[in-house]
Amino acid sequence: MTADTLIYIAVMAGVTYAVRMLPFVIFRKKIESKFVKNFLYYVPYAVLGAMTIPAVFYSTGNIISAVAGFAAAVILAFRNKSLLTVAIAACGAAFAADMIMSLI
């Protein structure tokens, strides 16, 4: 590994750490503004919605197996199953759909 590569990695890591660390260390007081509190309450759901849809349908490299995994996850999540259960079921359904397709 060259010194140049090391400098690139240091800059990458430094900036990435700074955007995480600065707000985390600086914000000490509880926020009083109702709008800001409501806004922050919704941030995780908004982030997850944008990250999941439509990316989930391309996550297995095949839209049919992805839809199978997605459907399994939605059904189990709807029944309040744990994160690990839902994640494994999604993989299992995607894998099964892929196997079935390769047999046809």
């Binding site: 995780p44 999941t52 989930v56 996550s59 995994g69 996850a73 259960t85 999604a90």
Partner: peptide, 12 residues
């Protein structure tokens, strides 16, 4: 590859 999205769905 779908594991992480299954987890997201289980969260929201």
């Amino acid at each position: 590859g779908i594991a992480i999205y299954g987890m997201f769905l289980a969260i929201f």
